[in-house]
Amino acid sequence: MNSFTLTQAAAADEAVRDFAGHAGAAYLGGGTNLIDLMKENVARPTHLTSLGHLPLGDISSLPEGGLRLGALATNADTAWHPEVEKRYPLLSQTILAGATPQLRNMATDGGNLLQRTRCYYFSDLATPCNKREPGSGCAALHGQNRVCGVLGTSESCIATHPSDMCVALAALEAVVRVQGPDGERSIKFEDFHRLPGNTPQFDNTLKAGELVTAIDLPAQGYASNFTYLKLRDRSSYAFALVSVAVGLEMEGNTIKKARFALGGVAHKPWRDPAAEQLLEGQPASPDLFRQVAAKVFASAKGYEFNSFKIELGKRAIVRALKQATEMSQPLDSNAFLNSNP
């Protein structure tokens, strides 16, 4: 690990100033991804602005019925928060489907959004990677690309965003609140992460020095009809090959409102508003679900070892929608234990 200095900030504006005052600075949250990447020499900050003392760990109700997750609330505290379990069980299950208890106790909600890809080549300094070293090339294009993306990829990068939690936040249409040198702003979740294009070094649309301060959840948590289906090589502590988070508003067998997002297939949690619209106002049926799944993957492009994700993704959408429509009562937050394939 390279030498660095470290400041422990006490407030968000102090952290933003400290970051701006040090070239090569990085914000340190729970550290589960950043410290690991620093040990690998993939991340080489010369200064860390530690956020541990910032008062951003609370989870609180918003006046219009939503819920605010402080950026420094841990993944574990969020998944097991009574309001999250009751009103946003999709989010709770999704968090619990990722990582391990130890990592979830350290990792923060803000940090979960900012974790880097687990594409093998990103952390392998001996190989080219446009995300790590812009302009060096993409070793995954013709390499071991089984874990890589099939939607929204580019010639520069076919990496995926690794988060489970973010797949639920995309389906829930969360809003990310940030503070930077130019003040505060809000970013719609679908605009927070981005596609690689030819600048894959940028995972998201944050500007330099901007700090995530909170994640706001809208009032609708789809607590009656939801599913997180995660398909992976082993049933615990593995990243998704394909995952689907679904939230539905049902009236009898008719889908009134549908939101769903996919993980493991793209550079960002993948939503397809046109496919969601196909579901709305329609009676739930396997034929409809298959039609929706086909639409989502119409533009998919497989690579040597990951083409299987296209058929797997379609079947995952059909199964996840079926599970969500057939729910008669909310599952408890431990249901992820029994929902493994």
């Binding site: 470290l6 422990q8 340190l28 550290g31 589960t32 410290i35 690991d36 860390l48 530690s50 541990g52 574990a76 391990t100 208890p101 130890q102 990592l103 106790n105 350290m106």
Partner: peptide
């Protein structure tokens, strides 16, 4: 998980924790 310790009663991986914080 070999490095697991408890911090305020919660388990964490001490290898990914900077001691000073």
């Amino acid at each position: 998980g070999a490095c697991t310790v408890l911090v305020d009663g919660k388990r964490i991986n001490s290898c990914l924790a900077l001691a000073t914080v």
